[in-house]
Nucleic acid binder design. Structure first.
Lengths: 126, 126
DNA sequence: GTAGAGTCTGACATGGACGTCAGAGGCACG
DNA sequence: CGTGCCTCTGACGTCCATGTCAGACTCTAC
């Protein structure tokens, strides 16, 4: 498929897809006229990459651990494996932090609910 | 306390603290010579703000929901309350997404472990 | 063959949370 | 009094994922 279709099927912009390729996160074949051609598997690849971006990883970091995804071997595993486990732990810590933050917000929400209840018992918002 | 001490006690840079004030996330008194002076409570305020930044909120969003934190009243609650609950839900969804991403990484990790185990049963990394 | 949509490369623009530097003044200590 | 550290404002620099635009080429359909 061409880049436009891949964009539609993944939700990424055409611009982003080209950027991913530039950062070595995604590869493509080329037609005789130079247009990018993608295999079906590119869809999953893009979805994974976007998922990792959303998780806060940088393109460099993603590039560093992608070898583990592509071919799990002794060769690639060396550095990539370390990054992979590292990022997995970073992500875990981040999740824990976010949960704490959510709890903080819940406290504020609760405090507001109680305050409003005290002011006018029938007026609590949703 | 002055800005340097607040920075040390919160882990934020002096630059960041001035930025927070510019964005109306933090307020300070001024000495006669114009230096910023902070109350003890500023420490907690900065820690909260940083926590929200880490959670991916923008300074504008934080500014919009801080009124709920500062004075839970009918006045402030109106817009701020909506933002607060909105961001709470956004955060919750984000956490769920991150958990899925972590699971994806775990799958990759597991696949690698198995692959390496198949290659050389005694060679699995930590 | 011609219109219209898609694609190419290259480059500049953007937004957000800072870093960093310049030039000036403030404060405590000896 | 000077010396060293802190603070001030204002401005420009940075990083990174993208948007956006220009100018040229390609592909599809009629």
């Amino acid at each position: 498929m061409r880049i436009g279709e891949l964009a539609r099927r993944t939700g990424a912009s055409v611009r982003s897809l080209r950027y991913y390729e530039e950062q070595a996160l995604l590869s493509s074949g080329r037609s005789s006229s130079g247009q990018r051609l993608y295999a079906e598997s590119a869809v999953d690849r893009v979805l994974l990459v976007r998922r990792l971006f959303t998780a806060g990883l940088s393109s460099r970091t993603i590039a560093e651990l992608l070898p583990c995804v592509d071919m799990p071997s002794r060769e690639t595993a060396d550095e990539a494996w370390k990054r992979l486990v590292e990022e997995r732990e970073r992500l875990d810590a981040h999740i824990a932090d976010l949960v704490r933050t959510r709890d903080s917000l819940d406290e504020v929400i609760q405090a507001n609910r109680e305050h409003l209840a005290a002011l006018a018992p029938a007026e609590q918002p949703a």
